[in-house]
Write a protein that binds this DNA or RNA. Sequence first.
DNA 1: TGATAAAGTTAACGGTGTCTACAACGTATG
DNA 2: CATACGTTGTAGACACCGTTAACTTTATCA
Lengths: 190, 190
Amino acid sequence: MSTPTTEKPRHHHGNLRAALVTAGIEMLEEGEPFSLRAVARRVGVSQAAPYRHFRSKQDIEAAMAEHGFRELQTALREVIDAAEAGRVPLVDLALTYIHFAEDHPALYALMFGSELADDEDRRAACAQVFALIEEVAAATHPDRDAHGMATAGWALAHGMATLHLEGTLGRNDDDFDARVRATFAAVAAD
Amino acid sequence: MSTPTTEKPRHHHGNLRAALVTAGIEMLEEGEPFSLRAVARRVGVSQAAPYRHFRSKQDIEAAMAEHGFRELQTALREVIDAAEAGRVPLVDLALTYIHFAEDHPALYALMFGSELADDEDRRAACAQVFALIEEVAAATHPDRDAHGMATAGWALAHGMATLHLEGTLGRNDDDFDARVRATFAAVAAD
DNA sequence: TGATAAAGTTAACGGTGTCTACAACGTATG
DNA sequence: CATACGTTGTAGACACCGTTAACTTTATCA
């Protein structure tokens, strides 16, 4: 035990805000229904405690979504950093994006939930992801409109992720990855 | 009055199921929060009455989503029928699709809500829309893979609709329509 | 007409978001 | 060290929600 903290429940949690966000995302990952009271119970705190750190349920949900966007951004950046000499095909980014949606479906749904559309921080985190894609598009295709390519790339990735989660497209994952590659090849050809 | 029905409240509503679905969609259109009890109140019926026609809240939501998909299909078919000699550019379908999402944001969000993913009827209505797009793709580009083009077209339309509603892309509608056209032109070129 | 099933009602249960009033704690100041 | 104060957590309440059970009204048909 490197941290011999006293384990008896103290009145002041110390870092409740972050703990609530983490616990809330955990609930989504486990498929449990998220509720303010349930997340408070999970952290071991009273039902009204979250209101010291969030104004409303939407407010904590926006914080969870923001966290999700930052995780997504980290995953995308790893792909970029792992690539050689800055040449990252957009489709590789798209596949990472889609796999993130597959691996965290509930969080992904929350990130694009319509009620949270006007939260400032969540919007900013989302915009950062967009900027990252735009940056790659500009580096990979210097001769083309970077903003347009980023828009098309994200729209394609998001749309295919949605349709895949939704089940309209097939269920076979290998086929699906190949289809994503084929679709992007058609768009970003030459 | 072509239907001289007695107006005093009768015990048997006559067509409660359809009335509930319609009223539920009306609530979404008006931006009101949808709840089972509220929709029952709006139709003038007791809170438990909906359970004679729907097994759960998810069940009626799925019915509302199915209704939405059929309306979307009707809108798309109108564009097809209005076109001359069967030549319908995919981008015109996409713009109709996106305008539908803009005009009915809450219903559109419900249609793609993750909790309803496994409802049979909703899935079928969704698949019919996909089949319609595929049909147009096959007619417009007989030399290309229709399923692939339909997938790409829908993914692009759905993705751009989401990003637009979300606000990441600009707010100017004219610009946005032009951007959709440009993006589709890049994809479906030649 | 009278039995039966369908379609509605009332009342209740536990859960939820949110608010108000109160208690415990950390900290800066005397 | 003592004490006042602002922060953080608690307890309790309210209205609303989804859902179920038990009951009543109505339509249908032998």
